[in-house]
């Protein structure tokens, strides 16, 4: 246990030494980013409901509403409206009078709705492996072998619409496609894939309605 630790410390020390010798000093920079939307007219946000298809009985409407509401509660400047998820359809998204009525009912919030679908796709991927062989004289050879393997890919497609609860008009839209692949033998529950993939979308939703920081790395030079 001590040897790997010593090796790690030596590696870190040599990296620092190398950096200072060649004059590169990495630093972390946090950039303050404003919300994508002008949120001044809104103090309330209603995550209304989502249309879409899913696999293995994952209810993308209920799950997305619940997850986004809980994550959006971190935005202190907004009150997240508690209401039953609304069953929405594609036609409803452009029905301004419907959203105006919803707006009146919930005191003119910003409304978040849209489509969230989870699907499974079978694909064939190429896998490369090194194969070790020995010739008659015992010399080792390494050959790269290529084989086709089946992978199961879960794909989350989301189109999120932000609707002004006063006018019923769509004021902002974002489209996402996220995917993750497994070996077919892994039997990963669809709900696990859903949370993995929707988790990648959540920061963008937060960034649309609230100021946030983006942390990056930069090099200071000598």
């Amino acid at each position: 246990m001590r040897a790997p630790l010593a090796a790690l410390l030596a590696s870190v020390a040599s990296s620092v030494l190398l950096a200072s010798c060649i004059g590169i000093y990495p630093v972390t920079v946090a950039t303050r980013m404003p919300a994508d939307l002008d949120m001044t007219p809104y103090s309330r946000l209603l995550v209304a409901g989502f249309n879409g298809t899913a696999i293995d009985d994952v209810d993308t409407n209920a799950e997305t509403v619940r997850l986004l509401r809980s994550q959006l509660r971190a935005v202190r400047s907004l009150t997240i409206v508690n209401a039953a998820a609304i069953p929405v359809t594609d036609m409803l998204f452009v029905d301004a009078s419907f959203w105006r009525r919803i707006g009146e009912e919930y005191r003119q919030p910003l409304v978040l709705t849209g489509t969230v679908s989870l699907s499974t796709e079978r694909r064939t991927a190429t896998q490369y492996r090194d194969r070790e062989t020995f010739d008659d004289e015992g010399r080792r050879r390494t050959d790269a072998t290529r084989s086709a393997v089946d992978v199961e890919t879960r794909v989350l497609r989301a189109r999120l619409l932000y609707i002004d609860g006063r006018t019923g008009a769509i004021i902002h839209a974002d489209t996402f496609q996220e995917q993750t692949s497994y070996a077919p033998t892994q039997n990963v529950p669809a709900l696990s894939s859903y949370f993995e993939l929707i988790g990648r979308v959540v920061p963008a939703v937060l960034g649309t309605v609230s100021d946030h920081s983006v942390v990056g790395s930069r090099a200071l030079l000598r």
Binding site: G23, V27, V29, A30, T31, R32, R218, A219, L220, L221, R222
Partner: peptide, 16 residues
């Protein structure tokens, strides 16, 4: 001295 400008840029970025 180019590195000084680079570093100034990073510092300004950090401060918005």
């Amino acid at each position: 001295y180019a590195p000084a400008y680079n570093n100034l840029a990073v510092a300004c970025e950090q401060q918005g």
